[in-house]
Design a protein around this nucleic acid. Structure first.
Lengths: 357, 357
DNA sequence: CTGAAAGCGCTTACAG
DNA sequence: CTGAAAGCGCTTACAG
């Protein structure tokens, strides 16, 4: 370590002290109330005064202390979004929508991941109660957290909006924005069936994810409607991850009665699935067809390009954020709590073909 | 819209009012100072009193108002991370490291994207000055923001640490944590050269990204050292995105003097590159070899699996965060400002072979 | 060990 | 249009 000599001198360039509203007021020769008005309600101040104050602000480089403002106003302009994994490109896309709307409305975003995170129900509850944020967006089912959140919400009347999935019963009555996951999963499965597939397997996410469970319902429903049997071992958990999906795919392929098509509950898992099928020496879609869900940005560059269900991810994000803003601004009685259903669509690329066998 | 009848009744379950330290004090029969001590310095309070207060806290469900605490203490326990794109799996991995360390240290994370974002230099400057966060992590070169940040920093002495890339000259003297990008790019290029490649092209990110420019330097240096020519049109900008890389790859492949290998400045672009090569009817690595950078989680499931440079992403994140915490806690004179270099490694998979031509 | 009091930097009725 | 003053909910010397 050849650190500079003065490296630890704490006094070096000890320049301007923090400037508060008080020093601006002094310099401008007005009261602090007037300075505050110039910033927040300039129309209530005479032009002459306003000019003096603006001058003083410029001189001092004053900028209001956000901490004091938040405290005084009782709001932070911070929104917390809880999601399973920010690393999933689908959620990244939703986040872009949220961010865009947040920016427009003057909010910043705090992200909490439930997946990679060890955040406990108590911690989340604490966050809610601590008034650290003005509202919450839930993009992940919080079954374990459900009741906790609700009680905190009723105490603080903290606005909450749910995105991307149907809300669990313990969170009933929260507004939400999502596609019809059951119908979309049916569409995916029916597309496979329409191609002639009968031995169709599914990789769902995990038990705790309402979202992927809805997709599983849709799959089962479509199979049943088509009078198609779902054999033992044809439904496997992919943990919403590439590695989980690879494992699941190996199991699926190991069945004596190998499926000719696999429906993956999201594209992230479909990518793992695709890889594992090819690693087993089989071809896609020649030997096995694969269909995904989400239409993430990688879906069009997989090999083969992935047929999948597209969701309007950014739109969901924007809508969720707007709904939340409305609740924050108008109080929780505002608007209704109905689910907003946005449309999904089947995106046909090249990972599905007619069954060969 | 078949909204429920009472949907907009603002008075429904109008329960517990917010409980402040004052009501806890009253119930416990002590002063608010004592309540505060019970929470923050329990060892300064007699056990008997402590029990009374704990009881009162339980009864009321009291939780301190974070806004008031932040204001009073002059810190928010919020860290701002500025990065190009949270959607890039590499940055997601860095963020996991940051998050893990932040959690341990009691900080929450605010994310600002420079890429998808329209955040202006002024806005970022304003954020810095507004005391909204206790410190900043820069994972993206902020050339346009550089001076702004510095001036704000000197005014507020806001701790800043840079991650993932060398710092630009206008931010000199900030501590940083990163791999040696130049050396790593040389390693990648030299690996290609060692396989016998001579016509090696490169897809870099964008002009404004110091990080990818360092990688370009490394590439050029390795080529020069090996006395290999870099033809016109062999270096293209991929904009750090899949679509940008596809475009760049098309240009590269269009050269009369087609390269036999392509070095991509990150894996995200390599994925686009791989796809486009195959779409052109060529094989990887048969006709064209591809090497990436970052070793994101998709790298092992591309087709073929991607040879790339691995970075210890989570470790970088953790180290950056720890350094930042140290600065926040000990003042900015603490520690030294030297760059911490972490090791990279070549990860050999199957996207590189000897040139056929 | 405990309490009374000052004060953090703002905003906002309330008078004038 | 402007100012004096109260107060948001805490924490922390300072006395006792």
């Amino acid at each position: 370590m050849t650190g500079r000599l003065n490296d630890t001198d704490p006094q070096e360039d000890d320049d301007l002290p923090d400037v508060s509203i008080k020093v601006v007021a002094e310099i401008a020769g007005v009261s602090i109330a007037t300075v505050s008005r110039c910033i927040n309600n300039p129309e209530k101040v005479s032009e002459q005064t306003r000019l003096k104050v603006q001058q003083a602000i410029l001189e001092t480089g004053y900028s209001p202390n956000t901490l004091a403002q938040s405290f005084r106003r009782g709001r932070t302009n911070l929104i917390m979004v809880v999601l399973p994994s920010i690393g999933d490109p689908f959620f990244t896309a939703v986040m872009h929508g949220i961010r865009a709307a947040a920016k427009e409305k003057g909010y910043s975003i705090l992200i909490e991941e439930t997946q990679h995170n060890t955040m406990t129900a108590d911690e989340i509850g604490a966050l809610l109660v601590s008034r650290q944020t003005d509202g919450i967006i839930l993009l992940a089912s919080m079954s374990p957290f459900g009741t906790k959140i609700l009680s905190a919400q009723s105490r603080r009347r903290l606005p909450i909006v749910v995105g991307c999935e149907k809300i669990s019963s313990d969170l009933a009555d929260l507004p939400s924005v999502h596609i019809d996951n059951v119908a979309a999963a049916k569409d995916a499965t029916n597309y496979l069936i329409a191609q002639g597939h009968e031995r169709i397997a599914m990789i769902y996410g995990q038990e705790s994810s309402l979202l992927t469970r809805d997709r599983e319902f849709g799959y089962r429903d479509a199979m049943k409607t088509a009078n198609l049997e779902i054999r033992d071992g044809w439904v496997a958990a992919g943990q919403l991850s590439i590695s989980g999906a690879r494992q699941a795919t190996r199991e699926l392929l190991g069945n004596t009665d190998r499926p000719t098509a696999i429906f993956c509950a999201n594209d992230e898992m479909a990518i793992g699935c695709l890889h594992e099928i090819k690693a087993a020496g089989l071809t896609v879609p020649g030997d096995v067809s694969v269909i995904g869900f989400d239409d993430i940005r990688y879906a069009e560059v997989t090999d083969p390009p992935l047929t999948t269900i597209g969701q309007p991810a950014e739109e969901i994000g924007e809508r969720v954020m707007y709904r939340l803003c409305r609740r924050i601004e108008e109080g929780r009685g505002s608007g209704n709590n109905q689910a907003q259903i946005v449309p999904h669509k089947l995106v046909i690329r090249q990972s599905v073909a007619k069954p060969s066998s």
